Simulated scan of single mutants.
Amino acid sequence: MKLFTIGFTKTTAEGFFARLSRANVRKLVDVRLNNVSQLAGFAKKDDLKFFAKSICHIDYEHFPALAPTQDILDEYKKSKGAWQIYAEKFLSLMAQRKIENLDKDALDGGCLLCSEDKPHHCHRRLVAEYLKDKWHDVEIIHL
């Protein structure tokens, strides 16, 4: 199984959708808590759904179960918390939510979307790695 990840900041719409197309992504899986963000004009949920279908011929789905809670996010972003503490809390949240019970086929070939341009300090990487640990046969590809 392949699981892609992508961020939308520090890129153009052209570059973003070209990466999705080249990778043959099957579905854009939005893992943001707030998918109406103003960070990128093309990344608001309704626009993103339209562009994904029109440009890449792929579906879009918001998976809030794969997003941190507002409390966890605020502690890290607004209070400038430590990445390690954020990661530990989010990993614990995913375990509590039992995200490994999600439909594996629905995520196969999907691309986890978040705002961070790189996956290093982004929860989409934590989601992908958590699922790989639980499902074992996951190849993670960061676009």
Rank of each mutant, 00 (worst) to 15 (best):
C122G: 04
L28D: 00
A43Q: 14
N35S: 14
H57K: 09
R32L: 08
T5M: 06
A13S: 10
A106Q: 10
I58G: 02
T5L: 01
S115P: 04
H142M: 07
I58E: 05
L126I: 15
W83H: 13
L102Q: 08
K78Y: 11
C56A: 15
W135M: 11
I55P: 06
I6C: 03
D47E: 00
K10Y: 11
A82E: 07
D30Q: 09
L48I: 10
S79M: 10
A95L: 13
E139K: 08
E139R: 10
C122R: 00
L131C: 07
A13P: 13
K104V: 08
L48V: 08
T5I: 10
C56G: 10
D133F: 07
R125N: 02
V25C: 11
P119E: 15
A67R: 13
L20C: 04
R22L: 14
K44M: 08
D74V: 05
L93K: 01
V138L: 06
P119Y: 12
L20A: 15
C114D: 03
C56W: 01
K10V: 00
K89I: 00
L143T: 12
P64A: 13
D137K: 12
I85W: 02
E129K: 12
G41R: 07
A95I: 07
L113M: 00
F17D: 06
D103Y: 04
E14Y: 08
C122K: 01
Y60D: 13
E61V: 08
K78F: 14
K134H: 04
F4C: 11
